[in-house]
């Protein structure tokens, strides 16, 4: 009885599976749009973990290049962004590995040979009480990831304008000239972006 049921069920399972594969959104890769869409997101992700602007920039660039080279391996199971982030994560780990191996080779500092700075090194080691705690930074990392997630959900134009105005802090006129829009147009876009961002961030952060 059980077997018969099982056998009867089998074809439907296959059919469902087949159907599932057909309707699965197959992600397509398009490197021409990478930088416009993901550069800021990746950069922000990197800078919260590497905290050196130039290094972070290099890492993002490396990620894109590596992505190009292994484009054939992209199966379309995950979205482009997830795929790029997974490459970037590996790049960041490699970066830290490199630093650490350099450190191991020669970390002898002979800065304290003049009498004036004698004893400085002890003070240097005391933790700065005004420094951010690890927890603070961690929360900040998550927050900026969340912000970029929400920005990614906005239409391209809204995201661009919002980024320029809020994050880069450009003047209204500059943005208007750059993007060829009127001031009132800009404020409408900003208003929509702000409402969308607030709604999106409300779920997690407010």
């Amino acid at each position: 009885m059980y077997l018969r049921k099982y056998l009867m069920k089998q074809p439907t399972i296959i059919k469902i599976n087949y159907f599932y594969h057909k309707t699965m959104p197959n992600h397509i890769i398009n490197p021409n749009k990478w930088i416009d869409l993901y550069a800021d997101y990746l950069f922000n992700y990197t800078i919260s973990r590497v905290s050196d602007r130039e290094k972070a920039q290099d890492l993002v660039q490396d990620t894109f290049l590596a992505g190009l080279k292994s484009m054939k391996n992209f199966k379309g199971e995950a979205s482009e962004r997830t795929w790029l982030i997974s490459i970037l994560k590996r790049k960041i780990i490699d970066h830290y590995r490199k630093i650490n191996s350099n450190k191991g080779k020669a970390e002898v500092r002979i800065n304290y040979n003049d009498s004036e700075s004698e004893g400085d090194w002890l003070e240097e080691r005391v933790a700065d009480p005004f420094d951010k705690t690890a927890e603070d930074t961690m929360q900040n990392n998550e927050l900026s990831d969340a912000i970029y997630n929400c920005l990614g959900k906005l239409p391209q134009k809204q995201a661009d304008v919002f980024k320029m105005k809020t994050i880069q802090g450009f003047e209204t006129e500059v943005i208007c000239n750059e993007l060829n829009i009127t001031a009132s147009n800009l404020w409408v876009i900003i208003h929509r972006a702000r409402t969308a961002m607030a709604d999106c961030l409300k779920e997690n952060w407010f």
């Binding site: 930088i35 993002v60 660039q61 290049l65 900040n140 927050l143 809020t166």
Partner: peptide, 22 residues
Amino acid sequence: TIKKAEVTCLDKECKENMKKDL
């Protein structure tokens, strides 16, 4: 919140350079 998160983004010049390389 956005101020607190200290989000940054790349400037335009840098993106253009990246595009060229890519």
